[in-house]
């Protein structure tokens, strides 16, 4: 390695020495993940806005709506824990990525990266690992609050953990890919938060996070059913509430086959959207 360095330094204009090995994509991806994560927690607004928001809401709702849901043995707080895990995952994936990538693109950060030998895949590896880590942390905190404050029982059967695992993987992947795709929509960094957050808040209201989906009009349920959040929340309820909560569902079933189908479809759709629409330059840059 040091021999290469001297050779290159001595003849700066000479063609690159053949043994100049580029760092591997994975190594750069891991380095980006570490950097992204460190910087995320350094930026107070982002931590509060995307990370702590579902946690604050859970504590708030849990304190306001104490009590049981008729004939199920499940409390309102427990229901909120499951729903807010879905919203929390979407917050650190979809909302977080949608806004930060839009800001990075507008500021020229992406264009600068595109001018370096960083493999483009490494950028997405960094974002993905960062989102996975944040999601796991978010879920751990929400579950800890649910268990400690609201008597949520963690699933004891392996089957429900398996359900949790695949809902988590499909849900995070789909929401993250969708977040990367929608980052191209805001025209400027300033509008990014509004453009990304508004539909996300609406989606939370119609997807059964705050209001049970059974109380919504049919047409609203139809709209919500197109998007992944409703199904992610349903999947998490299956994992954390189990049989006791099944009577609260719209279909009196968790419909796990449909959950898998819709979340899986969004992973594929999100990937296609990213591949076809992702831009490294801002809109005014052409």
């Amino acid at each position: 390695m040091s021999e290469t360095a001297t050779a290159t330094a001595a003849t700066p204009a000479a063609p690159a020495a053949p043994n100049r090995r580029l760092p591997s994509t994975l190594r750069i991806g891991l380095s980006r993940a570490a950097m992204e994560t460190r910087l995320f927690f350094r930026e107070r607004e982002a931590v509060i806005f995307t990370f702590s928001f579902p946690i604050v809401l859970l504590v708030l709702f849990g304190s306001i709506f104490a009590g049981d849901l008729e004939g199920t043995g499940i409390t309102v707080s427990q229901l909120y824990t499951a729903g807010l895990i879905g919203a929390g995952v979407m917050s650190v994936s979809f909302q977080n990525l949608g806004i930060t990538i839009a800001v990075e693109r507008d500021a020229g950060v992406l264009k600068r990266l595109a001018g370096t030998p960083m493999p483009r895949t490494a950028y997405f590896i960094g974002k993905t690992l960062n989102v996975l880590l944040l999601s796991v942390l978010e879920i751990a905190i929400l579950l800890a609050i649910g268990v400690l404050m609201y008597d949520l029982d963690l699933p004891s059967e392996a089957g429900r953990w398996v359900t949790f695992a695949w809902v988590f993987v499909l849900g995070v992947s789909g929401a993250a890919l969708l977040g990367i795709a929608v980052s191209s929509l805001p025209r400027t960094a300033k509008s990014a938060a509004a453009v990304i957050t508004t539909p996300f808040v609406v989606l939370q209201f119609v997807s059964g996070v705050y209001i049970p989906i059974t109380q919504l009009p049919g047409w609203l349920i139809d709209i919500a059913s197109v998007f992944p959040l409703r199904w992610m929340c349903q999947g998490f309820r299956a994992a954390f509430l189990g049989d006791a909560g099944v009577s609260l569902e719209l279909a009196k079933s968790y419909e796990l086959d449909k959950v898998a189908l819709v979340l899986g479809a969004w992973v594929i759709a999100g990937l296609l959207l990213c591949l076809t629409t992702f831009r490294w330059k801002s809109r005014r840059d052409g």
Binding site: P23, E43, G108, T116, P117, A189
Partner: peptide, 24 residues
């Protein structure tokens, strides 16, 4: 031209991180 990044990274962190992209 201007990069309007208001980064939370320190100068040393940025430069060290970018160094990892290059072979030499």
């Amino acid at each position: 031209q201007t990069i309007e990044e208001a980064g939370d990274a320190t100068v040393r962190e940025m430069v060290r991180h970018f160094a990892r992209y290059y072979p030499d």
